[in-house]
Design a protein around this nucleic acid. Sequence first.
DNA 1: TTATATTGTGTCAAGCTGACACAATATAAC
DNA 2: GTTATATTGTGTCAGCTTGACACAATATAA
Lengths: 259, 259
Amino acid sequence: MQHQETNFFKEQLRTGEALYLPSISVDCVIFGFHAGQFKVLLLKYKHNNKWALPGGFVYKDEDVENAAIRVLNERTQLKDIFLQQFYLFGDVERSKEKHAEKLLQEEGIEDIDAHWLQQRFVTAGYYALVEYNKVKPVPDALSSECTWHSITDLPDLIIDHKQIIEKGLQVLRRQLNFQPVGYNLLPEVFPIKELQLIYETILGKKLDRANFQRKILSYGILDKKEKHYSGGAHKAPYLYSFNKESYFKALENGLAKEW
Amino acid sequence: MQHQETNFFKEQLRTGEALYLPSISVDCVIFGFHAGQFKVLLLKYKHNNKWALPGGFVYKDEDVENAAIRVLNERTQLKDIFLQQFYLFGDVERSKEKHAEKLLQEEGIEDIDAHWLQQRFVTAGYYALVEYNKVKPVPDALSSECTWHSITDLPDLIIDHKQIIEKGLQVLRRQLNFQPVGYNLLPEVFPIKELQLIYETILGKKLDRANFQRKILSYGILDKKEKHYSGGAHKAPYLYSFNKESYFKALENGLAKEW
DNA sequence: TTATATTGTGTCAAGCTGACACAATATAAC
DNA sequence: GTTATATTGTGTCAGCTTGACACAATATAA
């Protein structure tokens, strides 16, 4: 099975030029939230032990966005992921690292100099928001691992992938009031404190608990559940779920109040 | 001169495959503000009399952003234009119109079916903010006109250029508090009312004059000038200019108050 | 000289923000 | 079983912001 996949990928590396749109790739910054921290899903390349964002190429008859959706499905085993294109990384300089060269060598591809993978690529950055616990990370044929990494403690990344993550976070921060951030990162029901932690992480600052509670409830986008939470040695919080209808309606105009 | 340019362009159409990155183009939504209205700069193609955004291709050793800068310089004769990438339009469907086919025919290019211009293109959308009166619109070799059009009254546009403009406006609207909108659209000195009109146009709603005045001044980003304005039969307003330093500092965190 | 449109500034009620207070309570420690 | 601890739900309140409107000042047109 693993062997078969590798052959499939080798085959694609050989026939890629015929299959894919030249010069353009997609890379996905997959955000998850766990234990009070933001995480991104990264792949570890076999050939150089460096980490990279899950990415891929665009079939000649495929929407660019669909290529990103493919990559996401393959790495996370999830369907219907929330996805947002955030930037096209188009500098000449980003192709200078010759990352592809060693990869091709390692895979035993001939004619490396003229290989399509060696050409210049621009890449479209997409960020995804996923529910951490639902994801089953799957490495691709060129990778040995696919694991979560805290955004505050990233490993060595290929090319400009670190900048791509940072840009993704920056855009997410600015779009916070217009994106269904909590809805996609949290499970169906959750205590308000979890949502507050997400907002604090994205905004990079502490928020007053009482004020956050009052404000988020004032939008009328949360439904209170009867159930209680079982956690630490303290009073149990109520659980809430998003009222999808009013939440998405509120997002159209943005959650306008300040945080 | 005009003839020479045409030949230059014909030459480029022939040698484009060798010069340009395949599959990718840039299109610029150039916004100006005049007579209380938002305008975009459009080109009218000779071969089909349809209008289009100023656009172009990316040299193989050129940053994508630089390609957009080239296009802007050529069409407006301006340097140091404020420019913002806002979206990559990457659907398969957008290449279906066969817009290139007639163009190539018209220009007398042979081997049309295999021509590189006929392939699928994805395009990076950039918006620019320019000072209307400083622009000297220049058509390119394939166009008969390069003129301003009110965004409320757009002509027939090729492919998805209308959607590109709309997306650009939408992004501009959401980024309003983070972009130096007034600084780039207005002349060095201006009355506050002009700035208010820009905000009203982008936001699509009327703002209270007195409140706008108080709020914009409260940011401390405007310097009051001694000079007065000469206009209609009424009290003359003060003129202001942006205090560049405090303006850009304020934009880092966004002009956070609501409009 | 008068009319008109628009400006600079003022007022004020209603609502929101940020900071802090305090009783209630689910579990852990003893 | 009792007590300690951390965290929750809710309350208060001064200070600020918002939105709506008021009114005198004034540059030009009539």
